[in-house]
Nucleic acid binder design. Structure first.
Lengths: 341, 341
DNA sequence: ACTGTGTGGGACATTTTGAGACCTGTATAG
DNA sequence: CTATACAGGTCTCAAAATGTCCCACACAGT
């Protein structure tokens, strides 16, 4: 069975927010006691009145106690702080980590789900769910959602659910052509599945991902492809994964030359056909029909999804110079990234 | 470690209410889908507007889905219903049990904590905490709280915390004199401890619990004792335990005759010096200075605390003819009592 | 002995939230 | 085609949450 807390996160996330805020009060009190409302409120960054509300509640619960010298924890209060410590690390600890990552990586928003997707497959689904929520948040009146491939994106599609609000237009387009990969991880497959689950329309990119110059140009002339590409370029929401450079280079059946460059120029990350080194510089770009670098900056919202300790380096590299995006990742990757800071 | 839910209950007392109400919605939906707000709200006994609030929340969480034909669960929703099933059985199960017990025993309120205090000592503390909360609820402007002895009441004292609200007067008095028992289970010891933890005043009854006629009358004349007794008789809140008749008869060093009567007349329960048979009839009353039967009916609130499978029979007997009281017990006792119905 | 600073707690205006009531357009079954 | 049941929008009012200010008190340093 899943852990109760994970279930609660879905059923009563609002309640958990309250819980962690109250816990934070108790915890601060644990260290700062005795302390007054005013000092404590500024320390916690909440207004005095709000803190006061919580504090009177907590004292009614017999967890803290008021005195003229300030507030302090009762025995019960101390017990709660101690007992909830590990639990809370899962909740508010993650939130702290999110904030740290936002700063360190320079992205506007980070969402971390607990666990390590390298170890447990279910964690990937959690990321998928978080991603769906993020997509929902980014929805506007007109929505063109471009999606890439990969097992993580497959999880997003898996967790997708209808998100028709009001009279929104929902169009999903594949951002990439077909790789020689397993069909369930193809951008096209994922795009279709996602659109169906979301009850939206979709357009697929029926082209191979890698092309010779010649076929590239001839295909670009193809009206059916051109039409889909127009949508990709005008995408309002872009959802993509981030891969490890070497793995991806091999999977793409890149030539010897590319593999060498990956090695010699220390490429570590790959995303939608671009290879990045540790500084975030683009080392190599696969000749591809589909999402281009510039498209990222035209989009209303860019959501990158990638997790697992093994992808920490890749995530970090990509974020260095990537567009301002939302990053959905997991605890394993987050911890690994923050190790260096 | 204590169970997560018990900790959460202290930080957010109505976490269970919220959670079970949302769960109930999901569960009903699981069976009735697709169904509309109106039908569902009448089925669940909530107003349409409230249900609507929850339902929009749940659909934002991606657990349910709106359609023109009605609402239905998404895959995630179904998963939650399934996963939370066992957890919820424990929670709403207890609440159901409370209601059943209230009916069966004819008392106005029953609180059941999970577990069996015969098996785990911590369960007694949970009862203690529940009792403290009940006391708090019963507080008025003037409070005289009479307490008896016993290990369960000791647990109540253990869990007591300051309950000074506004300008309330808090006076604790022992309802019983001293038994030849261990000091930590004496009414006096418990009374003092409770009062200190609650930050109230206290008066103790410095008399032996069992008396000859002669000393009884002479002690009753004693001004210091008379004064305390006045308080006992005017108690607004009475907190007492319930004991097994035989155990208590032995512990009280009752004479041969009493022991025989307990046997022949099938006494099963004891509370504050009174012995009851299965029908709730008083079989025998110890000649005692302290709380009297009549006092119970003058009190604003009577709280009986007793748990453990072994005390099921005693609890049941006492409640038959006892005053309208609040009963704090545990799952072990509750299950045993309900077996017969 | 006094003053300044921090404390909890009371009081009140104001804003925000929550919920009741009613309405609309739409999909679906009879 | 129509009756019905549906989701979802909107208006309104009360209640709860919050912002604002002030007071009496305790305590430490002067």
């Amino acid at each position: 069975m899943e852990h109760l807390l994970d279930l609660q996160k879905r059923l009563i996330p609002d309640v958990l927010d309250i819980m962690s805020s109250r816990y934070r009060i108790l915890q601060s009190l644990h260290f700062l006691q005795p302390i007054g409302r005013r000092s404590l409120s500024s320390h916690l960054g909440m207004t005095e009145r709000v803190l006061r509300g919580e504090v009177t509640f907590l004292s009614q619960q017999g967890l803290i106690q008021m005195a003229s010298s300030g507030m302090y924890l009762t025995e019960n209060g101390e017990a709660i702080v101690k007992a909830l410590g590990t639990v809370m690390k899962n909740i508010s600890g993650l939130r702290n980590m999110e904030k740290q990552l936002e700063e360190v990586l320079g992205v506007s928003k980070v969402v971390i789900v607990s666990g390590d997707s390298d170890q447990y497959a279910t964690v990937k689904n959690e990321m998928g769910l978080a991603c769906v929520k993020e997509i929902e948040r980014a929805l506007g009146a007109i929505n063109i959602i471009a999606v890439t491939g990969g097992s993580t994106l497959a999880a997003v599609a898996e967790m997708m659910h209808p998100l028709r609000k009001a009279h929104q237009d929902l169009l999903f387009v594949s951002a990439r052509g077909g790789l020689g990969e397993r069909v369930e991880n193809q951008a096209n497959t994922i795009c279709a599945k996602m659109a169906e689950k979301a009850e939206g329309r979709y357009h697929l990119l029926h082209v191979p991902d890698q092309l010779s110059d010649e076929s590239y140009h001839s295909l670009m002339e193809e009206p059916s492809i051109h039409r889909v590409l127009q949508h990709v370029h005008r995408a309002t929401i872009i959802v993509h994964g981030i891969g490890d450079a070497k793995t991806m280079a091999i999977r793409r059946h890149s030539g010897e030359e590319i593999l060498k460059r990956v090695d010699t120029e220390h490429a570590v990350a790959e995303a939608f056909g671009y290879f990045f080194d540790q500084t975030g510089r683009v080392i190599h770009k696969v000749q591809t029909i589909g999402l281009q670098w510039e498209d990222l900056f035209g989009a209303h919202s860019v959501i990158a999804v990638a997790g697992g300790k093994s992808k920490a380096e890749a995530i970090q590299a990509y974020c260095k110079k990537g567009p301002d995006s939302v990053l959905i990742t997991d605890e394993g990757a987050a911890q690994e990234i923050l190790k260096n800071f």
